[in-house]
Amino acid sequence: MSSLGGGNAAVRRVGRRAEALIRHARRSHQLAFVGLLALTVTVSSAALAMPTFIPTSVLVIPLLLGGLLLRFRSLVVLTVFALIIGSYVMSERASGLPKTGFVIVLGLIAWIILTGAKVRSRLGVQGTRGEQMLMELRDTLTAQGELPVLPAGWRAEHAIRSAGGASFSGDFVVSTTRSDEVLEIALVDVSGKGIDAGTRALLLSGAFGGLLGVVPVEDFLPAANHYLRRQDWSDDFATVVHVAVDLRSGEFEVRTAGHPPAIHFDSWSGRWQTRDADGPLLGLVEVPEFTVNRGQLKMGDALFLYSDGMVETPRRDIERGTDRLVGHAERLVASGFKGAALELVDEIGGPGDDSAIVVIHRKTNPSELAGTECAAPRTGRQNPLRRRSAVLRQLKAYTA
């Protein structure tokens, strides 16, 4: 057992040293280049000395490492050097082996590696640095969408699913609190979907996140529209639903810019109603006007913000999609909408479009409802068809 443990420790030490060497090689380009040249010579010599045990195809290893560590010009030098060495090694092998075919295959592999390196060189990065930058940008976009910690009695959660399962999405969320008293959330849908819209979404998330909580609530959408106009995007635009909730009184304001309206669940009546607030798409009008819809979240109430990918598909219009969303959300009333965002995105989100939803819930205080029997039972006795028809009537007015 002790020898086995000692062997595992030795393997871990070798692994750590190898990782440290790779990190150092990434920082020192010249060291990586010289080391790969030496590796090419070493494996070639080993292939000549022990042709039975070491195949000539081992020369592919330095090329693959070079594609990860070297700049384009140095990789070209390494590739030419490996092809020359490989041709020499094959010429020394016994007759009857496919020597020309091996050189052609090695050259084809080298061309594939060089093509990938050429694309990365356009970014000014080498090896896996470009992929690492994209991962960091994705993590930044995800971190900016994290909702703030709310005081007792409130819950807010969100979920986003990109079209095709990509890491980047055209939908994103930015949020902040003002003096721990006012919660501001903006759900943005950038034109396009998936990776195609991901770069614009990343740019706008940084800008909108900087505006949110800094400019007055009523000035957020005009300022966001002004920023988008400055980008001079010919056919691209964005839709936004922006809500500000007073965490003391529950009063809220909803403003939209070409976005589906928010849905308000009234726990005391069991009704669902849309909160329409007309406003043009961001980036299309020089001086837009945005109306406001005000309301109040009482104990047990909830507010739903969602993108069009949740309610609209090529085979389903927005009215039927919203009716379906409300129907699924009704099932989550009893659980206090805990985990509702993720479940609704998984169950309702359209497979061909980015889907996002934000759920803001003011929790019910059991001590304040002691001796009261009307809150929870009403939601169960309320006719779901009446609630859905009310939503449909308001949606028709919205889409008219």
Rank of each mutant, 00 (worst) to 15 (best):
D276A: 15
P62F: 01
P377N: 00
V149E: 00
A201M: 00
V149N: 01
P55M: 00
L332E: 02
S367V: 07
A334Y: 03
G371I: 01
S45A: 15
A375D: 11
F53E: 14
R178Q: 11
A186F: 03
G153H: 09
R27C: 07
D139N: 13
L203T: 13
L108M: 15
S205M: 05
Q144Y: 11
S167M: 06
I109T: 11
E131A: 15
S249Q: 05
A18L: 13
T379G: 15
L134Y: 13
Q394Y: 00
L392Y: 05
G295Q: 02
L68N: 12
G352Q: 04
V240S: 01
E157T: 07
S234I: 05
S169R: 03
S249M: 06
L284R: 10
A302L: 06
K118C: 14
N293K: 12
F252L: 02
N365V: 02
R155Q: 08
T199K: 15
Q382V: 13
T42H: 11
A10G: 09
S175E: 00
A9E: 04
R138N: 13
L68H: 13
G210F: 00
S167Y: 03
V105F: 12
L59E: 04
A334H: 08
G210W: 01
V119G: 15
Q273P: 10
T142W: 02
H242E: 02
V182F: 01
Q231A: 12
V11P: 11
F33R: 14
I357R: 04
